[in-house]
């Protein structure tokens, strides 16, 4: 387990767009939620058959709303079940556990101007950041790219937060964000934040670096959904367990299923929290994370079990 868990009830389900649903959650013990910071995410524990599936989702509501937390979920057709369960099985009134918020995508409060960019469902952390900036009276603008007009979820809420400072890019109209011009000529003290698909994030980071932006001003969030893969065997040296990771579970999930406590925060290959030491690997490590450096990968000594796997053979971990 990671941070403290809370039991919540699904109070309301709203269909926002084809394949995008919003869930409003309240605590079952009647207490207030803690206040969180813009950009935070929670991890939902979803009851898929006899096992629990933990998926991270960004909180998108007002960070100071202590009664209701909201998340929006896009149905991932190729997912191993988490988002599909939320779209097909979840009902209002159901109770689930969530882990308290963690922020890996925080605003820099010393910034003098903030450029927020969202691609598709990446709007969710951007929305809570925009709310926080609006409350602080900060100077910010939002650039929001989506597939077609009906996919522009939350545009009214955004418009209300920053009238005239929301820019739309609709793919079906062949509009797209030109990062080199978006990032050029910005005053000192500007911060850039992006959440969206991998290719879009990479394009923006490259444009920023080419213009001389320092890393401290380029912020991105990108969660990878764990992909399945071939089954492989695992041995844990400290806890003395030996088991097989089935094709539809991540390594982290399989470890948790053994009752072994493993650390995590993002469950999406981004934060580095879940890093485990590889004692031995008879097979090829398939790294899917965004965290390890090329040298670390090459060393074969580390793995991020939330998204990465072994191809063939047996993996021995120090856990």
């Amino acid at each position: 387990m990671s941070s403290a868990s809370l039991n919540v009830e699904i109070r309301r389900i709203r269909d926002l767009a084809p394949g995008i649903r919003e869930f409003s959650l309240s605590r079952t013990d009647g207490d207030d939620f803690p206040v969180y910071s813009g950009g935070s995410h929670i991890v939902l524990s979803l009851p898929l058959g006899e096992r629990t599936h933990r998926n991270p989702y960004s909180l998108l509501g007002d960070p100071t709303d202590r009664k209701t937390w909201r998340v929006a979920v896009r149905k991932q057709e190729d997912s191993r079940g988490g988002s599909r369960w939320l779209h097909e099985q979840a009902r209002e009134g159901m109770r689930i556990d969530i882990a308290a918020p963690v922020n890996l995508f925080a605003l820099n409060r010393l910034g003098r101007r903030h450029i927020l960019v969202a691609g598709g469902i990446g709007i969710t952390p951007i929305l809570s950041q925009a709310r926080e900036l609006a409350r602080l009276g900060a100077d910010f603008e939002v650039h929001y790219a989506y597939r077609a007009p009906e996919y522009g979820v939350f545009v009214d809420e955004l418009e209300a937060l920053a009238p005239g400072r929301i820019h739309h890019y609709v793919q079906s109209r062949r509009e797209q964000i030109e990062f080199s011009s978006l990032l050029a000529g910005r005053p000192l003290g500007t911060h850039f934040y992006i959440c969206g698909p991998g290719g879009m994030v990479a394009a923006s980071m490259n444009a920023g670096k080419a213009l001389g932006w320092p890393e401290s001003h380029l912020h991105s969030e990108q969660f990878l959904a764990p992909t399945g893969g071939e089954p492989f065997d695992v041995k844990l040296t400290a806890s003395g367990k030996a088991f097989t990771v089935p094709s539809d579970l991540s390594l982290l999930e399989a470890i948790e299923q053994q009752g072994v406590d493993a650390p995590y925060l993002c469950r999406g290959g981004a934060c580095g929290q879940c890093e485990l030491e590889v004692v031995d690997a008879s097979g090829e490590l398939i790294h899917h994370d965004l965290y390890l450096s090329a040298e670390e990968r090459a060393s074969g000594k580390k793995i991020m079990p939330c998204v990465s796997r072994l191809k063939g053979g047996c993996l021995t971990l120090n856990l």
Binding site: L110, G111, R112, L188, G189, T190, H191, P214, E215, S216, H217
Partner: peptide, 10 residues
């Protein structure tokens, strides 16, 4: 420079 939001890597 701090008042302009300049960070340490700049």
């Amino acid at each position: 420079a701090d008042t302009f939001g300049v960070s340490r890597d700049e």
